[in-house]
Design a protein around this nucleic acid. Structure first.
Lengths: 160, 160
DNA sequence: ACATGATCGTTACATATGAAATGAATGTCA
DNA sequence: TGACATTCATTTCATATGTAACGATCATGT
């Protein structure tokens, strides 16, 4: 006679819990560089990607950092205005941009890295080895499951 | 002599990974009701909360479903226009709203619950018991750690 | 070479978002 | 009772976002 059948508890609902923890972590993380360097999350991702693979196009960044290409384009433009990034046209293909970090961009990156690493280490420090390993597998398995779902964009918000 | 010191790998960076998996799960999940019922993620959260605690105010919802109060206010208004929710003013305090699900709202809710539960079960099915338990602890521990950080909003995007 | 189609980056436009301000209602305290 | 501060929900306004369109460039096939 209980009506509680098929009542869904948001607090324990996996998609909700993931969204909440991710938003909270992102927020805490972004505070580390948002005010100090005037950089958004998208811009941080672009910088982090450029630090590892120089001379890349908007499309490359889009495919690697889970941002749609419009967002990448705008982030790159803002970073260029701020002098953190240089845009040049690719010699072999004029449609492409060769985007690189400027010296100032590298400087900002080097300042952020220890903050970011420290923040991550601080978070991970509360987890034991088994929990970290399990989390690793959870990421892999969930992604693998989502790959089977055509609705779930494989890499980022929409390809276009 | 290697320059790779303090180069941060975004792919393995916890905040990034959480953001990516959460966005992907949310996206897949929202497809289940977005087109069929014309409901956004915020609206779904409001509905899910109303199903469990009737006759609540915007502030109550805001405090429980990790949405700032402006977003809740707008979600409730849209739901009211769609006929899924009823707004009445609280008898004891005229500043408050008594927000409840309409019959139509309940109907939509009952249709979404099995889809949502099925989606969650499908995701969880790829994890074994140890992984689920570990994930549980990870959520708890990360939240506990974030609670110590004043920058991390305790519950939602900003109180006010 | 040339037409056709695809790809790259950007822009236009409509909608979404959030911080601050607003109006209405209540609480507080002298 | 009467200022004064608080709280609630909404609105305002500036910015952010994403889809679709765009111009420019390249690839393909004839």
């Amino acid at each position: 006679m209980d009506d509680e059948t098929d009542l869904l508890d948001l607090e324990t609902f996996l998609p909700y819990r993931l969204a909440v923890i991710a938003a909270r972590v992102s927020k805490s993380m972004s505070v580390l560089y948002a005010e100090k360097f005037g950089i958004s999350i998208a811009e941080w991702r672009v910088i982090a990607h450029l630090a590892r693979s120089e001379r890349v196009s908007v499309r490359d960044i889009h495919a690697c950092v889970n941002l749609d290409k419009v967002k990448v384009s705008r982030a790159v433009s803002r970073l260029e205005e701020a002098g953190l990034v240089l845009k040049a046209s690719n010699a072999a293909d004029n449609r492409l941009l060769d985007i690189t970090l400027s010296e100032k961009g590298w400087s900002v990156y080097r300042q952020i890295v220890p903050l970011a690493s420290g923040f991550e280490a601080d978070l991970l420090s509360v987890l034991d080895g088994a929990e970290r390993a399990a989390l690793e597998r959870v990421f892999e398995k969930l992604h693998a499951r989502l790959d089977e779902n055509p609705d779930a964009p494989r890499h980022s918000p929409r390809e276009s």
